[in-house]
Simulated scan of single mutants.
Amino acid sequence: MKCPRCQNEDPNFFAYDKGVYYCRKCIVFSRVQVGDTIEPCHLSHRIWKGKPKLTYALTEKQKQCSTKTLNYLKQGRDVFVYAATGAGKTEITFASISYYLSQGKKVAFAISRRQVVLEIAERLRKAFCELSVVEVAQDYTQVTDADLIVCTMHQLYRYPYGFDLLILDEVDAFPYAGNTLLEAIVDLSCIGQKLYLSATPSSEILAQIEAGKMEVVKLFERPHKHPLVIPKVIQRDPWRQVLYLLIFCARCQKEHKQVLVFVPRRQDCFWMAWVLRLVCKAVGIHSATHDKDKILEAFRQKQYDVLVCTTLLERGITIGSVQVAVYQAQHIVFSTASLIQIFGRIGRTFDDPAGKGVCLCQYASQSVRECIKLLEWMNDSASSAMPP
């Protein structure tokens, strides 16, 4: 037996009902019976030969990476873009998106996290203002087709055999990383090439690159050409870390700088925000927060000085002039990749390309040490004349 959707062949994941076997592994998406045929989805196709509108011109290295990526895709190869946070991964894909649309082909952007789906959709609307763009995620499922589709990985189940170019952003992040079910859903939705994007490739992706199963394009220089911020590592006991945060946030408030404070657990969000309210306007947010979209937008509008959050906001979020602090950075939830992404929130804009990062911990864990080492390596690589 084999599931026609997720390719499951494990007998433990099949159940028998009224004369037929069905797959329990992917039943969360809908019931599929053994022997069923997965029909292709019906999506609109439009030939568009326009050009995206950018708020700034691509740098020479970005242009080189963009051209190299498109050339590999034209050869029928899957591509992994290994780029530093804030290096312009999204903009590098625009030439490839434009080419596929000019051929009347279908393109989608798939991302692990809902918050990033909403942000990328808005960026694509501005760049491809002549096209319709739809986000498909939790609370956004009434419309599921447009010229460009931006969705969570889970929502790809709606699009079997749907996309000629599938752009997969932050593929090393939860819940996609290591999830064989989502990998199967991704494979089913793509009839052409896959374009992977991340600043922190997993060991599985690196192994595929080494085995020649996909091409790699690297870019570690940010458009403003300032280096990635290397965080200051401060080792203190937990309560002295809190005291440090009070002083740090108070200083940032005087400098009119907002702060993202990352904490390891959901329950840490609200007591930490309560403590920080002694010196500034602070609020907490995590994945189960009911009005998280409203809170995040209020922070963007500078209604709060400090946003205390979990790793929910470690990726894809761009906020100008933000400083970053991590509380209890030695906690297991803060992996090397997570810390690189977190400190990558700093210095992403031309208006304020620098900033402060503070890594508060009881001891410098392996993840903390590797984060510093990799950020320094990316800065060294960015100074080379050509993309490595």
Rank of each mutant, 00 (worst) to 15 (best):
K373W: 07
E370Y: 09
F334G: 09
C269A: 07
S384N: 08
E122C: 02
E297S: 02
K105W: 08
S383H: 03
E130C: 05
F334C: 15
N12V: 03
R265P: 04
A57G: 11
F14S: 01
V150C: 11
V326C: 05
V233S: 01
L313P: 10
K105R: 08
Y159E: 06
F80Y: 12
C3D: 05
K373F: 10
D305G: 14
V259T: 06
L246D: 07
F128I: 00
D147Q: 04
Q7C: 04
Q362G: 15
C129F: 06
K194M: 08
V134I: 09
T141L: 12
P160C: 05
R5Y: 14
G50R: 15
V259H: 06
L166A: 07
S66M: 06
T289D: 14
K53D: 05
S335A: 02
S132I: 10
K232M: 01
E376K: 15
D36C: 08
M272F: 01
C359G: 14
Y304L: 01
F80V: 15
D17N: 04
S287I: 11
R369W: 08
F14A: 15
F350D: 14
F13Y: 08
D17Q: 12
G19W: 06
D268N: 13
G320L: 07
P231K: 03
Y363E: 12
A137V: 08
R24C: 14
Y99A: 04
R369L: 15
L276H: 00
C361S: 09
F220Y: 09
A250P: 09
D145K: 07
A385C: 02
N379K: 00
F94D: 06
G88S: 12
S189D: 00
V28T: 13
